[in-house]
Amino acid sequence: MLTLALRHRDPVPLEAECVCPDRLMSMAIADIGRLKVWHGNRQTELAEHFQITGDGSDGRVRVEGDCSRVKMLGSGMASGCLLIAGNAGMHAGARMTGGELIVEGDAGDWAGAEMSGGLIRIGGSAGNLAGAAYRGSVHGMKGGMILVDGDAGDEVGASLRRGIIAVSGRVGDFCGVNAAAGTIVVGGRVGARAGAAMRRATIVTLGPTPELLPTFHVCGTVSPTFLKVLGRHLESHGFSGAEKLRGQFVRSCGDMVSLGKGEILYQAD
């Protein structure tokens, strides 16, 4: 395993998109240290910011220290395992296509934005726009899975196209806004305007009954079989509360201002 220990806690953000297991696995430590990273408006070398030890040929990288100001960790990664033993900054795992990214602490905004494969596990909370589309993009997350043990901010899964986002805690406003497909599971409270303009996606809330937009229409009480399959899948990844997915849900369809084939499922009394 390759270990990168952060040398400082500089408030100036560092953009370290080169920290990807698949990129580092075939490189010597000296070469890794010479990789270019932006520190504010200054291009620097990775070794200036991280003490680099070990061997990444097994595709495993561990990042130590509070990296809440280090952006783009694991962005674009395709394979291997990146463990961030602390917080991660913005864009962690953005546009990743495979592999596993584990953030033991909190992750900043845009975690897993536009990702198309792989697994992101966040032990703390995620910021805004997890799995979302960047401004101007048609689609957000297109595959893979994001698991958040804590809470998540606003616009989780904005323009979601495919994949699974599961948040154990609560999420902010506009969850699944403009989503085309995919699944979002929320263990706690869902903020305002969930599913606004969504077309086909599924939002499942296991917490309090959400405040629905008037353009969502209740379509009965159901116990969808796919939620049972999803529950077992999430259980296999250690997602807490997944057993509730076997229960009865009120199905609310929408958003009728859009295609209207999406659904918000919330627990029946």
Binding site: T183, P224, V229
Partner: peptide
């Protein structure tokens, strides 16, 4: 036209609306 797909892991499923709910 009311069928919906779900991809869970590497498997794709189809949800087909039927009279007692849906067939997966």
């Amino acid at each position: 036209g009311w069928q919906a797909s779900k991809k869970i892991g590497n498997q794709r499923f189809w949800r087909i609306p039927v009279m007692d709910g849906e067939f997966l």
